[in-house]
Structures are given as C-alpha cells and as structure tokens.
C-alpha cells in the first residue's frame, strides 16, 4: 500500500509540475486579436414617430469594412415597420470643409427572414474632433418619405486583420480594398474575403441639394482579380511565405474570396496585384520570392498588413 501511495505521489508530482507552461493555443491568437461576432446597436435615431436603429459588430463603427443592419420600428408600438427605398449615405466633413463619402451600399436591401435592411460601409478614416462622419438616411413609409441626418463616431480598428487601403489605379480611378474576413486568422488555411470598390466619378454636376447621391457614388468592382502573395516581413523570417494560396475572385455576393495560408502567428503582409476584368494591372508589383534571411521583406506597392 505504501508503495502504491509513493507511486501515486510521484505521479501527481510529475503531472502537476512542468518547468515551463505549455502554450494555450486558443488563447495565443486572442492575445492580439479580439473577435466580434455579435451585432449590437451602434446608433439609435428617433424621427417622426419612428425609431431607427443601426447595428454593427460590437455596436461600433470601425475604420474599414462594416456590415450594417438597419431596423425601423414604430416608436409607440415597437412593431417593425415596413419601409421602402431605404437609403444610406455616410459623408465625412474634413478639416478643410470638404465633403467626401466612402464605399457604401446606398440602397439597403430588406432581408425578409431576419427582418432588417442590410448594407455596408467602408469607412476610410476615423472620426476626429475636426473630422466628422454623418449618416444621411431616407426611407418611405406609406407613400410618405422621410430623410434624416445623424452624426456618428468611427473608431480605430484595433483588429489588425480587418485593415483597408485606398489608392489610385493606373486608370486614374480611385480604388478601395478592405479585408472582411477572417477576423481571427488561424495557423491554417484561411478563407480570405475582401471588398474591392471604386469611386464612380460623377457624370453630371451636382443638383445643388445636399447631399446629392450621384456625387457620392461608389460601387463594387466586378470581375477583377486580386492576386495574392502573403509573406512575413520580419527580417529574421527571410521573406518567408506559405503555399496553396489562391487569388481573390468575385463571389455572387459581390465580395472577393481567395485562400491564404498562415504558417505561424505574427506579422504578415498580403502583397497584392489588382487586375481589372481585361487583365490589366491597376496597382501592385511582383515581390521577390527569394529567401533572404536577415533582410526585411520588400512589399508590393499594394499591400495590407495582418497581425495575429
């Protein structure tokens, strides 16, 4: 009996005592990445007896891609109200008084099964004391149309996996690329989803009524290809890359999807080359594929950084 006790004691002693702790893999990626998967109310507006609620992930508008859910209810009865022609237009007034919008869905689509109007906005800047974002909303209920303006706050995106970039392509058009997913990458094969948008230059002068949506028009580009070459820029990683990655091509919902493999956590750079539907390079340069230990990896002139 004594011996069995001795054995068990020895066993417990060992099981309980590793000199160094094993990494908690689930927690490891959480140390720099917070994942939000709950839609919460980001802004609430009351107008003419209607309550308008706009939801975003974590109840916050962030710089970059934001999925938007808009609900309209009767203020008295709290019953959902069916509206038509629901429009959504974010505009920033910059320090020098310019008004600029950002890629957004102007007309919000009604999702019958989940009972909200859905859309998105790719905020290109964070709100500052002298730079303000306003939402211009309009909708029609029972033939009566309503429009309203609401100031919102756009916060810095702390998740380094949901960044965006804006640039002028070789065709002199203004483009925007924003990462939509994965919010929390894994050391694995990840589906990489991005939105690619362009600013539609107005063809006619402003109507004079502010805001004139035709002056703030953006659209998803269609049938482009976003070539991908992910690499670790850290000098000691010697321009390390991964394999089995796939370029991003457009899906039915308008977003672009491809595959990125991350072989370890840390800093990654997604080096891109954007091709239009005719295969012409609009932006981006091929990067070296050489293994160069000790040298910081050179980036394409179109890239988005990742950190997880």
């Amino acid at each position: 009996m004594k011996k069995i006790l001795f054995f068990l004691t020895a066993l417990c002693f060992v099981v309980a005592s590793c000199t160094k702790k094993k990494t908690d893999y689930e927690a490891e990626i959480n140390t720099v990445v917070t994942e939000h998967y709950e839609f919460k109310e980001a802004v609430a507006i009351t107008n003419s007896g209607y309550a308008i609620s706009i939801e975003a992930l974590n109840g916050t508008f962030y710089k970059g891609y934001n999925e938007i859910r808009l609900k309209i209810t009767d203020k008295q009865t709290h019953i959902e109200v069916k509206a038509s022609n629901v429009t959504f237009l974010p505009i920033i007034t910059t320090a020098n008084g310019q008004t600029i919008s950002c890629p957004h869905s102007y007309s919000l689509d009604y999702q019958a099964d989940s009972q909200y109007y859905s859309g998105y906005a790719v905020f290109t800047k964070e709100s500052k004391t002298n730079e303000n974002w306003d939402l211009y909303l309009s909708f029609t209920i029972n033939g009566q149309s309503y429009s309203l303006k609401q100031n919102i706050s756009v916060k810095e995106q702390t998740n380094k996996n949901l960044s965006m970039t804006a640039f002028t392509g070789k065709d002199e058009e203004q483009y925007f690329i924003a990462i939509v997913a994965p919010q929390k990458p894994k050391i694995a094969e990840n589906q990489l989803i991005a939105g690619i948008y362009k600013n539609n230059k107005p063809s006619n002068p402003s109507s004079g009524v502010f805001p004139d949506p035709s002056q703030f028009s953006y659209s998803e580009v269609s049938d482009y290809v976003l070539q991908l070459d992910p690499r670790m820029p850290e000098p000691s990683m010697g321009n390390h890359s991964s394999l089995n990655n796939r370029d991003l091509i457009q899906r039915n919902d308008g977003l672009y999807a491809g595959v990125v493999n991350y072989t370890m956590t840390g800093n990654w750079t997604l080096n891109f080359i954007l091709l239009n539907k005719n295969g012409r390079i609009l932006k981006g340069t091929e990067v070296s594929k050489d293994f160069t230990p000790g040298v910081e990896g050179a980036k394409s002139d179109l890239f988005i950084d990742i950190l997880f």
């Binding site: 893999y25 720099v32 072989t263 956590t265 840390g266």
Partner: peptide, 20 residues
C-alpha cells in the same frame, strides 16, 4: 508529443511568432 516554437522578432516589442 507536443513541441512548440516561438520566434522573437528583432524588435522584442513586436508580436512573437508561434507555431507547433
């Protein structure tokens, strides 16, 4: 069997690189 590797970037304030 478990084996980990954690690489430290030259700038130690930066995120470490981890894999099994």
């Amino acid at each position: 069997s478990i084996a980990e590797m954690r690489m430290y970037p030259q700038d130690r304030n930066k995120r470490t690189m981890f894999a099994y």
